[in-house]
Design a protein around this nucleic acid. Structure first.
Lengths: 193, 193
DNA sequence: CTCCCTTGTTAATGAGCGTTAACACGTATG
DNA sequence: CATACGTGTTAACGCTCATTAACAAGGGAG
């Protein structure tokens, strides 16, 4: 887990608050002055840490996509040749952890992609695609009856399910996590028909 | 069904194009000139049909929420005292039809609510809440073991699943509809545990 | 024919906002 | 001690954009 005990750096503060604000009111809906105010400095002061507003969004989205993909790959590696059943559980668990711990980021992740400058957008899309394909492979290993287009659609639909966390109440983190996990498995099982 | 054969009115054209553009680039991301250009008139020309940009978004969101709620109520009424099982299928079918036929609208529906002026936002929230509660009642009738908070969370998660249509490919409408339907039922069944 | 309502147009206005410029202050470094 | 750098500040610039003003053309109603 590599838990951090040291204080967050200024850059990290800014990214965190920017993520929250972007998720709440949309990228174009928040001004640099607000982001600055959220961390106790003035608007233009942000430019000591980031090249511009676009750069903040880019770093957030690249970070999210990369973190999801990296975590998933680690889980695949750790699973070795274990049952694909357990591997799918592991992937689901990782995604849920992320969706529950960083709700603003999960919101941004599928909402503000198009506000990104060309190069970064392409990179993020690539990372997202690889993440999806990784899931698709695991799902197809577990459910060989599922054709590839159907498997991809199924994975996207389950992402929609898991990413609904921003709309959920807060009645106990573990209870919510378990509910979502069960529902995801149920949805996969029902997809094969 | 009351299928319309007459040409769409100018207002309707504008609403349709505005919905598409808002869904693609966000409310603040599109200018009135673009909306006007999409229907062949100039930006300020829109003001002959709407009080402003906010009014367009408001009419879209109120329309969506109202349409969903009205359709769901009709289905409940038509079901009479039939099995709640069939009623849930009917609700799912209605939601999927909407999500597949009006993808831009379904995107706006849970994305741009906060860009709405106060009064309209309250109205839309109210309609959405009633829609959710209607589902919750049906679900609890079918699965009495499910406590109310869990049922509400489950319904939200299934909405996330069904609303994933914008991310899906277009491999056959009926096949996609059936897949989503099966997954939704599977998710509900798995939620009770 | 004449009015006037509808539906457009282009030009102007005014606010908001991202970004840059110019300047200030503390602190480690030589 | 002097210097340079990191990190702020406020003021100003320039652009975008929603909205309004002023004006025009077409087509029913009387």
């Amino acid at each position: 887990m590599a838990t951090r005990t040291d204080a967050p750096t200024r850059r990290e503060q800014i990214l965190k608050e920017a993520a929250r604000l972007f998720a709440e009111r949309g990228f174009h809906g928040v001004g640099v002055d607000e982001i600055g105010a959220a961390v106790g400095i003035s608007g233009p002061g942000l430019y000591r840490h980031f090249a511009g507003k676009d750069a903040m969004l880019a770093e957030l989205l690249v970070g999210i996509s990369g973190q999801l993909l990296t975590g998933a790959r680690r889980r695949v590696a750790e699973a070795g040749d274990a049952a694909p059943d357990a591997l799918l559980d592991s992937l689901i668990e990782g995604h849920i952890d992320f969706a529950l711990d960083d709700r603003p980021l999960i919101t941004l992740h599928d909402r503000e992609l198009d506000r990104l400058p060309g190069g970064d957008r392409k990179l993020v899309r690539q990372l997202q695609r690889q993440y999806v394909e990784l899931w698709v492979e695991v799902v197809r290993r577990l459910y060989p009856a599922l054709a590839e287009p159907a498997a991809r659609a199924t994975v996207h639909a389950v992402f929609g399910l898991l990413n609904s966390t921003p709309h959920l109440g807060r009645p106990g983190r573990t209870a919510t996590a378990e509910l979502l996990h069960r529902m995801a498995r149920g949805a996969f099982a029902a997809a094969v028909g």
